[in-house]
Every structure is written in structure tokens, then in C-alpha cells.
Design a protein around this nucleic acid. Structure first.
Length: 351
DNA sequence: TCTGGGGTCCTGTTCCGC
DNA sequence: TCTGGCGGAACAGGACCC
């Protein structure tokens, strides 16, 4: 029955930092930027005991645990650690979908002893990198993912769909990926507070409340029905660069200078990958946190900083923010087909 | 006490050409 | 020539994920 495994490295960024600085082991460690508006990227399990979690403002985390050790993120190190882990994963199974730096779905079909193979993989990762990971195994991605999360850290949970339904029946719907805080709140207003209740709600009710697609999808997820298909090669559909200011900026000239700079950085990345796009967008977050995007499609795909910068500046001038700005970003999308991706080894051939 | 950065996908609206 | 309907593309916003 079990066809899919989900592997998730425990507290990935924080664990990489603990590997490099063993003297910090046992201490509450927070990986986070340092500015006044920084948020926590990852907290070690010791820090989580103080109620600190991902995406929490760092200022609040410090209040919760003043003795916590703050470490600045080092993405080059995380990429390197990730590559080491994923190389071992690919050695264990042929078909892998990598999700972000610290997760992967594995197709276990055809393995003689899948559980033993996954136990071995966990041991190999630990031996080679010092990192712990959690494994979930199930008939589809959804069960595998929730199972890998259920007993973190160092979890190893194997479930059928029916066992998943029974085990998590009384949990809030937000346990399931794809059901976020907004949907949880809306469900609550309907009196639906558990996965069991969501699974048992007539689909008509959900369609009326959430629409013809989202409604039935919610019920499928609550019943742990889902796909076992893996996307073996992922190709990005957009790339962006954005920044939040330590203090809001109202001065148009300063905003324009920053936007040009962001466009330059983005184009440099695109050029390194030999990618060009036809769609240029800006993102502006105002001091009241309203977020506005403006996009324009141009005639020819580009990664020329002069072109991207000019289009972005034009969009910003047309929008002319009426309030101070806290975040500015630029994005390029609608890439031309055929450009190589850094990690693409089997490209779809352009016609 | 406010809320990062990098993405994906879906939905509703508007516009344009046939 | 005018109007109407339809479908696709582009755009904007929102929810969600790591």
C-alpha cells in the first residue's frame, strides 16, 4: 500500500548552524535576520519550548526568550547541506520530488523493503551530515506529509489513508497542508472545527461557502485523499527580488533608486541562468500593510537591467504610492521556453 | 507586538478581437 | 454599421507554502 514517503529535515537551518557551532547545542537558537522588522526563519527545538516559532517577529521571540542565541542565516551553507542530503535521497530511490531545501517526496514503488530502506536513509543522512530527519509514509503525498510532521523530531510514521483519518480526526483542519489560517477561520464560522467534521460536511455546503473547486478540494483533503504523482523536474515560472525597509520610505526618488537596484540584482541572477522573461511586475507594500502589484508584458523577453528597470520605474511612477512604503520588489515572469535551469538535466525540447 | 523573502496556484475582472 | 456574445490573454489580489 505505502507508495510515497515524505522526508523532512528537522529544524533544518538551525540544525545546520548547530553542526557548525557545537558549543551552541542544548541552547535555544534562533536563525533570523537582525533588523527591527526581522522574523524568525527557524528556531531550534530548545527555542520552541519558549513558544518561539517560524515567521514570528524576532523582537517578540527575544522577549519570549531573552537568552536565546541569534544566528544570521547563511543560505550558501544551507544549500550545500541540502545537496548532501538530496544526493543520499537520490541514491536510495530513483524518483524524487525535492521541495525547497529541506523536504522531498520519494516514490517507494518497486522497493523490496521500503520501510527498511527509509530507516537506512535516515541513518545515512545522520552519519554523513549530522542532521536528523523525520519520515512519513503513506498511499499519497498528503498522508506522507502529515505523517512526517506527526512525531517530529526524528519521527517515523507509516499510515494508511484510513489510519490517517482516524488518527487526526479531532485535529483542527489547519493540520492539513493547503488549509491555512484564513480557511480555518471561515470553517470555524461554519461551526466546522475538526477534520472529522470537515470530512462529514455535505459537499453542497462546502461548495456554497468556498466555491465549486475549493469546496470539494477541502473535503478531499480532510479525508486524506490526494495525489501520489511526483513532479520530478520543477521549472520556476517567475523570479523576484524584494526588500523590506527598516523604516518606511515616502521619498519617490529614493524609492526609484532602490527599485533600479533591485532590478539590477534580479537581472544579474537571471543572466547567470540565461533566462529572460516578457512580464515585469512591481510589488509595493504600504505602511498600513496593504500590498499592491502592477505588471506589464513587453514585446520581447529580456534580462537587461536597463529594460527591466525602466519598465519597473514606469509602473512605480504610474502607481505613485499615496502612503509611505515599507516594501518594494520587482519580479520577472513569462520566461521564454528552452532557457537552461541550473539544476535541469532533462529539459523539455522546444518545438 | 505587529507582520521576511522567495515562490506557486487560483479566482475574479477587464479588455480585446472575432 | 451596430450590437452582442464568447473566449483568451493579461492583470490584480489573495491564500498558501517553505
Amino acid at each position: 500500500m505505502a507508495a510515497i514517503a515524505h522526508l523532512d529535515v528537522d529544524a533544518f537551518y538551525a540544525s545546520v548552524e548547530l553542526q557548525r557551532r557545537p558549543q551552541l547545542r542544548g541552547l535555544p537558537v534562533i536563525v533570523s535576520g537582525s533588523g527591527p522588522r526581522a522574523v524568525v526563519t527557524t528556531a531550534s527545538y530548545e527555542a520552541r519550548r519558549f513558544g518561539i516559532g517560524s515567521a514570528m517577529p524576532t523582537a517578540r521571540a527575544r522577549r519570549l526568550c531573552p537568552e536565546a542565541v541569534l544566528v544570521a542565516p547563511d543560505f550558501a551553507a544551507y544549500r550545500e547541506a541540502s545537496q548532501a542530503v538530496m544526493a543520499l535521497v537520490r541514491r536510495a530511490v530513483q524518483r524524487v520530488e525535492v521541495v525547497g531545501l529541506d523536504e522531498a517526496y520519494l516514490d517507494l514503488e518497486g522497493l523490496v523493503a521500503p520501510r527498511a530502506a527509509m530507516r537506512r536513509l535516515v541513518g545515512d543522512v545522520r552519519a554523513a551530515t549530522g542532521l536528523d530527519c523525520s519520515i512519513g509514509i503513506g498511499p499519497n503525498r498528503l498522508v506522507a506529509k502529515v505523517a512526517s510532521d506527526a512525531e517530529k523530531p526524528r519521527g517515523f510514521v507509516v499510515l494508511t489513508r484510513e489510519q490517517a483519518c482516524a488518527r487526526f480526526a479531532e485535529h483542527a483542519p489547519g493540520l492539513v497542508p493547503g488549509i491555512g489560517p484564513k480557511t480555518v477561520a471561515r470553517l470555524q464560522r461554519l461551526g466546522i472545527t475538526t477534520l472529522r467534521a470537515l470530512a462529514a460536511t455535505p459537499v453542497d455546503t462546502l461548495v456554497a461557502a468556498f466555491g465549486a473547486r475549493h469546496g470539494p478540494e477541502l473535503q478531499r483533503r480532510a479525508s486524506f485523499r490526494g495525489s501520489a504523482e511526483l513532479t520530478l523536474v520543477r521549472t520556476a515560472v517567475s523570479e523576484s527580488r524584494e526588500t523590506t525597509f527598516d523604516a518606511d520610505i515616502a521619498d519617490a526618488a529614493r524609492l526609484e533608486a532602490i527599485l533600479s537596484d533591485l532590478a539590477g540584482q534580479l537581472c544579474e541572477r537571471l543572466a547567470r541562468q540565461d533566462r529572460r522573461g516578457r512580464n515585469v511586475a512591481i510589488k509595493v507594500r504600504l505602511d498600513d500593510f496593504t500590498t499592491v502589484t502592477r505588471a506589464r508584458t513587453i514585446a520581447a523577453a529580456t534580462n537587461d537591467p536597463a529594460v527591466v528597470g525602466e519598465v519597473a520605474l514606469g509602473l512605480l511612477r504610474e502607481y505613485a504610492p499615496a502612503r509611505p512604503v515599507r516594501l518594494l520588489g520587482v519580479r520577472v515572469a513569462a520566461f521564454e521556453a528552452g532557457a537552461a535551469q541550473p539544476d535541469d538535466d532533462q529539459l523539455a525540447l522546444p518545438l
